[in-house]
Design a protein around this nucleic acid. Structure first.
Lengths: 152, 152
DNA sequence: TAACGAATGTTACACTATAACGTCCGCTCC
DNA sequence: GGAGCGGACGTTATAGTGTAACATTCGTTA
């Protein structure tokens, strides 16, 4: 899923945004964010907890979930409901609902970020009188590399 | 979410489809389907289990999950990943990915079923070389009734 | 330095889902 | 008719995900 470029330095971007918003990117939150950003695939809360424990840090599930809640609120990460896993956001500066392409082959996830998809959903929902607040699109399939690797 | 009509008789439709496909809609599967179809809101697996137990039926989680797996495979129900809950499908004859409008006010869920949304997602994904297999759209917001009940 | 609130530590538990194995039942094929 | 087979279900145990509730620490401010 390399089609979409990541920010040069996700951590620096996260620090910049938190500073601008007056939010505290503490040591724990920063470390959880780094673990997610460093993972090539979506990572689960308990896998993050394992990493923290390997580093000698004390920790129980709430330790991780509180950090995840903060990062989600700040839009620095997304939660993939279909996988119960978390992924860094490549463009956290603009708040947005998530649109994800999940590859069945390699497990990597790309973010679609299509204004057209978003607008179409809003319009179709509005036609039914439904007011959209947040939207979540998760698409399962095969990425270009995996399609090339296993030709039909 | 009454904008989308339900089939006249979901159970009859389910029986018809299973018969046509040579699949067995057993007593247990039928009952689980009825419970889901009768629920005005998405219902969780353990809530279904509670109903079965209230009816005096023996049961453990696998009892319900196996029935759910069957109904999902047949496209008779959908799973809402963001809620960990299940909902009947209003048009099970055509296989399709789910597009759901989830109301924060009343908890009811409508199915969008927009070919345009689906096609847009497929097109945008294809532009990145990604081949779509199944897609899942879950939209959180407020339905017409709840918007009217609590004016801005 | 006292006081306050935010962040974290800690224990316990709720909720969701599946693995593994046994039993029963209906069907087919000799 | 019975041996064998496969699908559905029963049962026990456990894995995986997430939160409630309360104690403690820490930084900031007054």
């Amino acid at each position: 899923m390399p089609a979409i470029p990541r920010p040069i330095d996700p951590l620096a971007e996260a620090e910049r945004l938190c500073l601008a918003r007056g939010m505290r990117l503490t040591e724990l939150r920063r470390r959880v964010f780094e673990i997610i950003a460093a993972s090539p695939r979506p990572i689960g809360a308990y896998a993050i907890l394992d990493v923290l424990r390997d580093e000698g840090r004390a920790g129980a599930p709430p330790t991780v979930y509180r950090a995840l809640d903060f990062l989600l609120e700040q839009g620095l990460i997304h939660r993939l409901a279909s996988l119960n896993a978390y992924i860094g956001c490549p463009h956290p500066a603009e708040r947005h609902g998530g649109q994800f392409l999940i590859c069945r082959g390699c497990g990597r996830v790309g973010e679609l970020h299509s204004g057209l998809v978003e607008a179409t959903i809003v319009a179709e929902a509005a036609a039914l009188g439904f007011g959209v607040e947040t939207q979540m699109v998760e698409v399962l399939g095969r990425c270009a590399e995996c399609t090339a690797a296993v030709p039909a």
